[in-house]
Simulated assay, not measured.
Amino acid sequence: MRVVSLVPSLTEAVTLTLPGALVGATDWCTHPEGLDVARVGGSKYPDLDRVLALRPDLVLLNVEENRRADADALVAAGVPVRVTYPRTVDEALTELADLLRELGAPAEPEWLLAARRAWATLPASPPPRRAVVPVWRRPWVVLGADTFAGDVLRRLGVTNLYADDPERYPRPSLDELRAREPELVVLPDEPYRFTAEDGPEAFPGVPCALLSGRHLTWYGPSLAAAPAVLSAQLADPVVRPG
């Protein structure tokens, strides 16, 4: 089967599980390192002519990563698509297992079994911390309800103060974020690249945890290491003077 992936998480999952199946990926598909397949542009604006030229048997997409218009265009061109949309860790594990089985994997790969074990045997977390989770700046955008990353953080003892917001990605002002009086600010390095110099200064006196975006938002082989990586980063926040 010839597969094109427009989702970095799934690019890594398919490549490690079924070497040779993947024939194309986006420019943002950075894992596994050294990936040598045709590149088809970005996740939001792929070059569909390049995708079609690869004669894929299946194109992998995600509701949040990709545009509905591109999925519709591929279907109209006669190309089968598989659209993923996990909103919890359990849903991600199930969707991955189903996808890999349908692509011809004879059994669940070791990385997926390791991910199941890692999330089933989480160490005791500290008392829940009330947090805001910005994912963009200028304007500020935060995690709201019903997101995969939100479920990851919940399992690690982080209570998202916007988890009951009607929007999945609310856009509060900085004053509104501060008014929530978070005990913790979670700053992933993607999609916006928050750093120790860009982010914590907006929340003086509040601990700011700088997290690996790949381990927070990717649903693939990184899931196996995510609990340990993220727990360590949550335990080592940056605090700017108040």
Rank of each mutant, 00 (worst) to 15 (best):
A224N: 08
S222H: 06
H215T: 07
E197M: 09
E190A: 15
A202W: 15
A226H: 04
Y192G: 05
H215I: 08
F203N: 14
G199H: 10
A196P: 05
R193Q: 15
L211M: 10
E190Q: 13
C208V: 01
F194L: 13
V206M: 00
E201L: 06
A225G: 07
R214D: 13
P204V: 00
Y192W: 09
P227A: 06
G220N: 04
L216I: 07
A202I: 02
A202Q: 13
G220R: 03
G220D: 08
D198M: 12
P188N: 13
L210D: 09
G220W: 08
L216E: 01
E197T: 07
V186H: 04
T195F: 02
L187Y: 00
D198K: 07
L187G: 07
T195E: 06
A225D: 15
V186I: 11
V186E: 01
D198S: 13
P200T: 08
S222A: 08
L187C: 02
P227H: 06
C208D: 01
H215C: 13
S212P: 06
Y192F: 12
P221D: 11
L187R: 08
T195P: 03
G213K: 03
G205R: 03
A202K: 02
S222C: 03
V206A: 02
Y219D: 04
F194A: 12
